[in-house]
Design a binder for these strands. Structure first.
Lengths: 202, 202, 202, 202
DNA sequence: TATGAATGAGTCTTCATTCAT
DNA sequence: GATGAATGAAGACTCATTCAT
């Protein structure tokens, strides 16, 4: 029943920057997820990493799960940026598979990025609400490639890229560029004979 | 010589069976890992699932981590069985990509299997000791395929199959057989024809 | 996901007496409920009062609510004892209202008892499962009195006795014996003219 | 002199109304106490219920306890209103016990009212300062009845009415009117007849 | 004046692990 | 050998209260 005898009168000297604080907390959580996996997130670790008091982590997020989702959201947003870059490069190169392979290799060489992907995948397995987040890369890549090859080939490449992510995370380094190039080229060429000739105007 | 004094042949209830018990515990842990992920394993849940006393789980395994590894080991062993089956089918079909696609599709349609793979991958990220377990599928498939195509193509198919696993776990159902067949065929043919000349892998 | 890095290896030197421990915990909880009300129960206070480690309170009761109920159960059991005593006295006195009044006065003079009643009543308001516990006194008294007066009168006396409990708990002392005697006599006589003459055989 | 420059009559949004706000907070707290019990009151819940910012609850009341008391005060005030109505009815009926029984039954049928009483009783047990609030009903009823019967009988009826409150709160419905009428009649008649001689109260 | 940001104490609960039996 | 009792660390979460603005 908690007769309400009070919890004390904490002295606190706080920076007054809610936005920044929230951001710092999410950022810290995202880092921890990349480092330790989505399941090992705790308020305490986040607070410590973000250099905020424990209470702040519960003040800004009504549950740990909410915080986790915000952090995964952030990781997914980074994937979107990545994708935008790839889309531009690829458009500039008129869908050249080698360019995609290079870009993919760069992504896969970034361990943080790869682990972030893995964390998203894993977190989404038992959290259907996160599926769309986890599929950002796959769906985004498929869409980008659809401008340069047929949908089935696009999907095949996207599937392959997820496999390459698993490969990178388990080997601590990505497949070599040549292998990526070869496979991606093979898969993209497959259904492109026609659409490719359309694109070739230069 | 009295027959009813209770001293005769000792009534050994439920004959001790350390091996069986150990196996039951590992089995229960494996199930839980598939259902809940490798991180949510607890002695209590395992004991309950295995119908053994709590103490048994710490008696047979000196730490939770050890139990977890034994369970993951078991999951990996099942993968080996799966691979053996695929190897045979494929050998019988003389490396027909369509047969591989069918077999892969069957694996991917088994949610338990897919989640077991995912659990292994995820557990291995931060546990180098588990890498070899997690790579069983990849390495095994690569080896099997090496009998039917060149090493690079084999590896490409194995990478693709891991991607297909990710796809299945995130979509709750596998890619359709046609798509699998098409892609696998494309990738495997590559290694048996002379088109290889254009893509080099160091 | 709790990667299972362990919680430590506590040294513990425990008395090995589960029954006694459980009893001590319930007893402590009952005391606290009497002193502070059912809503102010906490694991920590119970542990401190019972001189057991915090963990013991959660080991023996899977939730605080379960512990609370066990404690209230215990308080209710004491009420039953009380009632048995009253039943005997009253039977021996052939249902003499003055004897009941004396007994009731004695109960009401026991602050612990009165507060225990109040705690039971209050706890039961929002916990239908506890209603039967809270009604032990009322139902028991009604039944006892049914042997000495008609059901309606019995119920009226029981209701009055609950009012007297409220009175006692709010005044820190019971109604005087004379007032109790007068009212109980009036209420019991009311419907007893006939049944009373039956009982009068001495 | 320009009309559209926004400098003219200040647009005072939602005119400040400290009194109203305070009232809204107390009202919300009173509702919560009736619904959840006096111990489950929190600033947050009150603020939400009253549709005021969290800060308002601490701005108008220097502590939660103060707010709780204000809310209990309000509940007690409602009891006074109730009592005034009963007093009038009873006066108009020249102290007819049946009229009192009807009125009491109506009160007891109002679950909110009954729970408010129970909350007051319970809160007062460990807060002597609230005793007078909790005794409003008892004292008020006793006084009203004193105009129609002797003090002892009046008190007996008041005690009985508290018992009827306990009964109602534990059974979720009041004693039937017939039972109330019968008992109240019996108790009140006592004080107007000469039967008083047998029971003395110091 | 009014408010929401801030915070740490304290709540229940879970659990790996140890150890007496 | 086996097991359940034992325990304290740690986790998520709530909240009264203070204070900057």
């Amino acid at each position: 029943m908690a007769t309400g005898d009070g919890h004390g009168a904490p002295v606190h000297r706080a920076r007054r920057d809610p936005e920044g604080r929230r951001r710092a907390i999410v950022e810290a959580a995202a880092e921890l997820i990349v480092e330790e996996g989505p399941g090992d997130l705790t308020h305490r670790r986040v607070a410590e990493r973000a250099r905020v008091p424990l209470g702040a982590t519960t003040y800004y997020f009504s549950s740990l799960e909410e915080l986790r989702e915000a952090a995964l959201q952030r990781l997914a947003d980074r994937i979107d940026e990545e994708l935008r870059g790839i889309a531009e490069e690829l458009a500039a190169a008129d869908g050249d598979p080698a360019v995609l392979a290079e870009a993919l290799h760069a992504c896969l060489a970034d361990r943080g990025q790869v682990r972030a992907d893995a964390a998203l995948y894993f977190a989404a397995i038992r959290r259907p609400a996160l599926r769309s987040l986890a599929l950002r890369w796959f769906d985004g890549l498929t869409e980008i490639l659809s401008a340069h090859t047929d949908p089935d080939a696009a999907r095949a490449v996207a599937v392959f890229s997820d496999g390459a992510t698993v490969h990178a995370v388990l080997h601590d380094e990505p497949l070599d560029v040549a292998a990526l190039t070869h496979t991606i080229t093979t898969l993209m060429r497959r259904g492109t004979s026609r659409s490719r000739s359309e694109g070739r105007t230069g």
